[in-house]
């Protein structure tokens, strides 16, 4: 049943991806910015410009260019990057783990922090604790992630330099890992020093990404918790002598979680998009950073590959979200 549902969702994703591919392909060729114009050196003649267009296949009609690209994509290749002279698929594959780890860590921080704030706000409802949580979440929500990033750089990078400002690991050390999933692999192999180093590098960008989402989770979850706290089963638990904190954590939290899960899933997809700016700010070598370079250089094959990757990520995240609904809500699980 579950496998069939997943398969169906994946099949439904195919036309979406084809639509995205066509749209992106056409749009990129319609918007201004000729990739060859970016690399014309001083002294080049009109013939040189023609030669460079031909070299990158940009002299062919758009339809023909699309057919060539689609053929490559069907074989698992997305062409050669104009600016980096390497296969697009390989480039994205080498960078995707860094972004996935960043998103995963940011989502974890956001969920832990958001839930903690919601629980604290509910526990101290009507008092200063709730007011403080509301103020904090409002502030976190109002400040964009890149401003958080700049603030963190100033505070934890310059004024109190406890965290590294850029990159994914210390360039002076050889990490010697087999995969691009540096954090996960180092944790699995119990190389805690490496894991600590990677975590330290990810702390600021991940937290900057996480704070607005954490605030959103806190607000929605607190509201759901407040609703649950008025339910009969909560009153019965309190009458039985359970502490308010225990009732929140053990009884009410699970029932209040569904709207939050829904919101978190949607917001995590935005988190993936948010990595573009944050990765740039922290010189973090993920696909977001790669995307900015690709756009600046009008690297059409790379932009196409990256947008398609983002699209696949969105689809997969939404699929995971649907599955998690079913896990949390028995009504969905049993039809």
């Amino acid at each position: 049943m579950l496998a069939r549902r997943i398969l169906l969702r994946l099949l439904q994703a195919v036309p979406t991806l084809i639509g995205v591919a066509v749209l992106v392909f056409v749009l990129l060729r319609v918007v201004p910015g000729d990739p060859v114009a970016m690399m014309i050196p001083p002294g080049a003649s009109a013939d040189d410009v023609v030669r460079l267009h031909a070299l990158y296949g940009l002299d062919r009609p758009i339809f023909w260019q699309f057919l060539v690209w689609a053929g490559q994509a069907a074989r698992g290749s997305f062409g050669i990057s104009i600016s980096l002279h390497q296969g697009v698929a390989g480039l994205i594959a080498s960078r995707l783990p860094a972004t996935l780890e960043l998103v995963l860590l940011a989502a974890t921080i956001a969920i832990v922090l958001g839930v903690a704030l919601a629980v604290i706000g509910t526990r101290f409802a009507g008092g200063g604790g709730e007011a403080a949580v509301d103020a904090a979440s409002g502030f976190a929500l109002a400040v964009p992630d890149f401003v958080w990033g700049l603030g963190f750089i100033l505070i934890f990078g310059v004024l109190w330099p406890v965290l590294p400002i850029s990159g994914r690991a210390d360039p002076m050390h050889a990490l010697d890992l087999a995969t691009g999933f540096t954090l996960i692999e180092s944790l699995l192999r119990l190389r805690l020093v490496v894991a600590g180093e990677v975590l330290a590098h990810m702390a600021m960008p991940a937290t900057a990404l996480a704070l607005p989402l954490a605030a959103m989770i806190a607000r929605v979850l607190k509201s759901s918790l407040a609703e649950q706290m008025g339910q009969d089963y909560v009153l019965i638990a309190r009458v039985k002598g359970f502490s308010r904190a225990r009732v929140i954590l053990v009884e009410a939290l699970r029932n209040a979680a569904l709207p939050t899960v829904s919101l978190t899933g949607v917001q995590v997809t935005f988190l993936v998009g948010g990595t573009v700016l944050i990765e740039r700010l922290f010189s973090y070598p993920g696909i977001g950073n790669l995307a900015i370079d690709a756009v600046i250089n009008r690297d059409l094959p790379l932009i196409q590959g990256l947008i398609l990757t983002f699209a696949v990520l969105f689809i997969l995240i939404n699929l995971a979200l649907d599955l998690s609904y079913a896990a949390l809500d028995p009504r969905l699980r049993h039809g």
Binding site: I153, G157, I165, S166, S283
Partner: peptide, 18 residues
């Protein structure tokens, strides 16, 4: 060579001693 394309981050790099 640390590739720090953002000017604010480069300022932080030198100011922090990184």
């Amino acid at each position: 060579f640390k590739f720090v394309t953002d000017a604010a981050a480069r300022i932080a790099e030198i100011e922090s001693g990184s």
